[in-house]
Design a binder for these strands. Structure first.
Length: 289
DNA sequence: CGGATTGTTCTTCC
DNA sequence: CGGAAGAACAATCC
């Protein structure tokens, strides 16, 4: 369930730890995670990580020796990276599992791929539910993956007037529109509920009925909610830890997500849980219109 | 044990 | 062509 702030937190930590390091060997524990690439290990052997980029919730690794090779990494719901140095977990990030035993040693039951660097450190990708991936891509595939993401709310150049028009062209519920990564990237189920609550917009409202002022507020709060979360370590929910297993702090800032039945922080009306766009949705029926 | 969980992709329909 | 809606995916929790 990582959303953009969690993925950005992971990106920053990985950038610090593995950029400039050379992969001595890679190991595939589950073929699905590498899109059934039979020579994944071979293609990565001897490659030096040159950069770790992020588009929406997707991480894109580049390599010094081959500018036409990319590694696409998506955590989806339960993916996590853990970085191990001298046999100790130094940093990692993503979803954590309820069985705490699983976070101690690697590889474990949910470890899907491993990257061993020439300096003796290792990076493990764990993903219980197998939705995520770490797969190699050529420039065409990488470009295609990038093309699925619209501009980012946290980008200083995000065009609010364009966003407003785009939203008002659609007839879907505003929550579904905000979750569409192709329109604008970053919001997942948690931050979208938080954004809608802050903007006082009801999630079932249709895009075409959203006013200019409301659209402006939605863009503004999507940005601030995610930037604030990145600042405190990108933790939004019970199951996310930063790299190394530390829990982030953003869960303290949540106003509606997971607060069903609790009083709205603004008006004290109990928070309702409904279903919108096929997703569990938290809403204050009084102040969100 | 049925249902809910969630990010993305795919399919179907319009 | 593209939007909307819903299924599919996988494994676990409640």
């Amino acid at each position: 369930m990582p959303e953009l702030p969690e993925v950005e937190t992971v990106r920053l930590q990985l950038a610090r730890k593995i950029v400039g390091k050379t992969i001595r060997s890679a190991t595939v524990f589950h073929p699905k995670t590498v899109a059934f690439d039979p020579i994944f290990e071979k293609r990565l052997s001897g490659k030096t990580v040159s950069a770790i980029d992020r588009v929406g919730k997707l991480l894109i690794w580049g390599f010094q020796e081959d500018p036409h090779l990319f590694l696409l990494a998506h955590l989806k719901m339960t993916g996590q990276f853990f970085y191990v140095e001298n046999g100790r977990t130094v940093t990692g990030g993503g979803h954590t599992y309820s069985s705490s035993k699983l976070t101690d040693t690697f590889p474990h039951r949910h470890t899907r791929t491993a990257f061993h660097f020439t300096d003796g450190s290792s990076l493990y990708f764990n993903d219980m539910r197998l939705f995520g991936y770490t797969k190699l891509a050529d420039p065409g595939e990488a470009a295609h993956a990038r093309s699925g993401y619209g501009p980012e709310y946290i980008d200083p150049n995000f065009d609010v007037r364009w966003f407003t028009t785009a939203v008002q062209k659609r007839s879907a519920p505003i929550k579904a529109i905000l979750l569409d990564q192709a329109l604008a990237a970053g919001l997942g189920n948690i931050y979208v509920d938080e954004t809608l609550w802050r903007a006082k917009v009801h999630p079932v409202r249709l895009g075409k009925d959203v006013t200019n002022a409301e659209a402006k507020n939605l863009a503004r709060y999507a940005k601030s909610v995610m930037l604030d979360s990145i600042e405190v370590g990108g933790t939004t929910f019970q199951n996310f830890t930063d790299t190394g297993g530390k829990h982030g702090n953003y869960s303290d800032h949540l106003k509606v997500f997971g607060k069903t039945g609790e009083p709205c922080p603004r008006c004290k009306t109990p928070i309702e849980k409904i279903r919108v766009a096929g997703r569990g949705t938290h809403v204050c029926p009084h102040c969100q219109r």
